[in-house]
């Protein structure tokens, strides 16, 4: 799949009939929202609903021209929406049966200090950005290069051991590691770059 900057994806959302743009947009931003919603205690299904509603709301605002980069970063803008939607969804849950099955439901009225939620959001956003950049790099490099990277970074294996496992020179393992790290850094810079 072609790598697009966030600016490009957002710009293509202005075309109402562009289903592919919507799919890309959802693919890029859904996960941190669902994870955030789960972190405030929503179920997987409810979290997906929150993500869907958040993204729809954001696109509406974006198309109306409400999103103003000067007023905050993209992640914070989406966070604002996701926060409201998640809390609203949780309030809605009052009418559903709670896990232990009372008809009235005992859905917890949870304490949400905004600092804590904000920190959760930042972490989820950051991880999502990195994950997407990694996916893109994986598409760009040879499978063996990425495998070397996985073994040396994810599994924290010594470069010499990785070289032995893959049957390559140790120099190539270091090259793979740093080329991918550098590429992730470049992609990351593009990720939130908005005009």
């Amino acid at each position: 799949m072609e790598w697009l900057t966030t600016s490009t994806i957002l710009a293509s959302l202005r075309d109402f009939n562009n289903q592919a743009a919507w799919d890309r947009f959802v693919g890029r931003f859904r996960i941190p929202i669902t994870r955030f919603a789960q972190s405030v205690g929503l179920t997987e299904i409810d979290s997906d609903d929150v993500a869907q509603e958040t993204l729809v709301a954001f696109v509406e605002q974006y198309r109306r021209g409400d999103f103003d980069r000067e007023r905050g970063r993209l992640s914070q803008w989406i966070f604002g929406i996701a926060y409201r939607k998640a809390l609203h969804e949780r309030r809605n849950k009052l009418r559903r049966p709670a896990e232990l099955g009372s008809a009235a439901g005992h859905e917890p009225d949870r304490v949400d200090d905004s600092d804590r939620l904000s920190a959760i959001w930042d972490r989820e956003w950051e991880e999502n950005v990195l994950a997407q950049c990694l996916d893109q790099v994986q598409r760009e490099v040879k499978p063996q290069t990425f495998r070397a990277f996985e073994l040396v970074v994810r599994e924290a294996l010594p470069a010499a051991r990785v070289a032995e496992m893959l049957g390559v020179e140790i120099k190539l393992v270091y090259n793979a590691k740093h080329r991918i790290l550098q590429r992730v850094r470049e992609l990351r810079a593009e990720y939130e770059s908005l005009p």
């Binding site: 991880e127 990195l130 990694l134 970074v153 924290a156």
Partner: peptide, 11 residues
């Protein structure tokens, strides 16, 4: 690059 290893490993 080495500063990024930790977060990437976590992800």
């Amino acid at each position: 690059n080495l500063d990024d290893v930790g977060p990437l490993q976590r992800v």
